[in-house]
Amino acid sequence: MAESPDAGEILRAPLTIGYDFQRTTGPVIGAFFTALAERRMLGIRDTGGRVVCPPVEYDPESGEPLTDMVEVGTEGTVRSWSWVSRVREGQPLATPHALALIQLDGADTSMLHVIDAADPSEVSTGARVRVRWAPESVDGFGNLVCFELAEGKG
């Protein structure tokens, strides 16, 4: 590979790319987002009887269309987590926090979201968490601000 001619000579310019189109969420994902606006969490029962949350449109194993929406809890258990020490643009919280897989009560699978915690020592696998809702109802995922630690152990 050629050596740098002179790093000082290299011109630089910012490039911001947008991908700003809107999506139709459909009857399953749309129902989940609609319920979020009402401060409720929905899953869906798959053909094997498991409750998948967030709900998916097709059975993960057989590919059959799924329709049986099930309300699940707004509290849950941390199944895995990692610490986000450097917060990036677009992430739900502006301060360092945990990224986590959270199994809501009544669900058999985990959802990805973040936990507002001051320090990684506060978070552990098996910890109990609950939803923190936006103070005023907004559309879609925005109404679910993050999770926060709750009492007890899952």
């Binding site: 999506r23 969420t25 994902i29 967030p54 199944r79 895995s80 987590w81 990692s82 610490w83 986000v84 450097r86 990036r88 643009e89 677009g90 992430q91 739900p92 990224l99 986590a100 897989l101 959802m111 990805l112 979201h113 973040v114 696998t125 995922f141």
Partner: peptide, 25 residues
């Protein structure tokens, strides 16, 4: 995916951390 995962903008290192944690646990 653009519905449940993408809107959280999770970085690739933190995502891999979830997998490592699951293995450690």
């Amino acid at each position: 995916d653009p519905y449940y995962y993408g809107p959280l903008w999770p970085d690739s290192v933190a995502l891999a951390g979830l997998q490592a944690r699951s293995m450690l646990d």
